[in-house]
């Protein structure tokens, strides 16, 4: 039985010379939550835009495949959609909640007009009354007083605007909702409310979620699978549980160590020193090697493939028996990310 709703194979995106996404593959199960995490500039937002065919020139997909699998009927080749077909595909199949609620709502149209717009284009048979009714229902669903439907975006708080965006994403009951950093601009309390809201709605409607954030701690709670991106590639992929309990990639370890543990254990907090690679230049070897405490000679010359290690996929040469015949570094297995001992290791 195939219960995949979205499959991405070997997808690459370039902005002119900059190769922002490089050969990314993943599958999203129906009703599942996939979290994609990484620092800003790692290509995660670009990936989301590419799936939705929203790249603005000079951005374009250079290779790969995005297939959408409807419950009934044949798979849809998303990258081949054009014109009317693409327009009808959008929002009904894959809806999106944008990063900054402040800018994602049109400042000169009321919330009503922006909600109605979805129905007038996708459900032309609906009457004005029905549209209004549905729009109010949607607002109520996300906890906004339907009486505020006539409000303009600047009259709403940041949290409310984010809820409006979520309501809008629910409008056509889509199969997949892409959330692009939906809570970044909000304070912690509101963040939590919004997350719970999304979880509740997902249980109600059963849509699958691609959740994109730089905040790994958010993902561990709500996602089934996790993909960690670095330098335009997925460097580790597995279930949330596996990734949390046994992170394999040094970068994942570094990210996890950047947050206090959820169980409240006292742990030293580390950022990851250094900055992400410049993707406009040709890269040789592992793109994380310059920042990696476990990098050895081979890391600077060989680019690691995404290989399976038990139930996870990891792209790291520490696990490559040919180039690194010894077992992975003990410190890595102990989930340490210490630059102080750098010399000792290399």
């Amino acid at each position: 039985m195939n219960d995949t709703v979205l499959s991405v194979r070997d997808l690459s995106v370039a902005y002119g010379q900059t190769r922002a996404v490089r050969g990314v593959s993943f599958e999203l199960g129906r009703g599942q939550v996939l979290g994609i995490a990484g620092e800003s500039g790692c290509g995660k937002s670009t990936l989301a835009y590419a799936i939705n065919r929203l790249l603005q020139p000079p951005g374009r997909t250079t290779s790969g495949e995005v297939a959408f699998h409807p419950k009934d009927g044949d798979p849809i080749d998303v990258l081949a959609l054009e014109g009317e077909e693409l327009r009808r595909f959008r929002w009904r199949r894959v809806a999106m909640v944008f990063q900054s609620a402040m800018n994602a709502l049109n400042p000169v149209l009321s919330v009503r007009r922006q909600l109605h717009d979805v129905f007038t284009t996708h459900e032309p048979s609906m009457s004005r009354r029905e549209r209004e009714e549905r729009s109010r229902e949607l607002l109520e669903l996300v906890g906004i007083d339907p009486g505020r439907i006539g409000a303009y975006p600047h009259e709403l708080s940041g949290g409310m605007r984010q809820r409006v965006l979520i309501a809008m994403a629910m409008a056509l009951n889509p199969d997949v909702v892409v959330l692009d950093e939906p809570t970044t601009a909000l304070d912690v309390v509101v963040q939590r409310d919004i997350l719970e809201e999304i979880d509740r709605l997902r249980e109600m409607f059963g849509f699958a979620v691609v959740f994109i954030t730089h905040d790994l701690s958010l993902l561990l709670e709500i996602s089934d699978h996790l993909a960690i991106m670095y330098g335009g590639r997925i460097v580790e992929y597995g279930t949330s549980k596996d990734t949390l309990l046994q992170p394999r990639h040094p970068y994942t370890v570094g990210l996890l160590n950047s947050f206090p543990s959820l169980r409240g254990e006292r742990q030293a907090l580390h950022g990851i020193p250094g900055s992400p690679p410049d993707l406009s230049k040709e890269l040789t070897g592992c793109s994380f090697a310059p920042r990696c405490p476990y990098a050895f000679e081979g890391c600077h010359t060989h680019e690691p493939e995404l290989d399976s290690i038990q139930d996870s996929l990891v792209a790291c040469l520490q696990y490559d028996r040919r180039l690194h015949p010894a077992r992975p570094d003990r410190r890595l297995r102990e989930r340490r990310f210490d630059h102080a001992d750098h010399e000792v290791i290399s």
Binding site: R87, W91, A104, L105
Partner: peptide
């Protein structure tokens, strides 16, 4: 046209 609300309008599948 680079504003999020224009990109979002496209994502919503509105007519060009």
């Amino acid at each position: 046209m680079a504003e999020d609300y224009v990109v979002m309008a496209q994502a919503k599948g509105l007519r060009p």
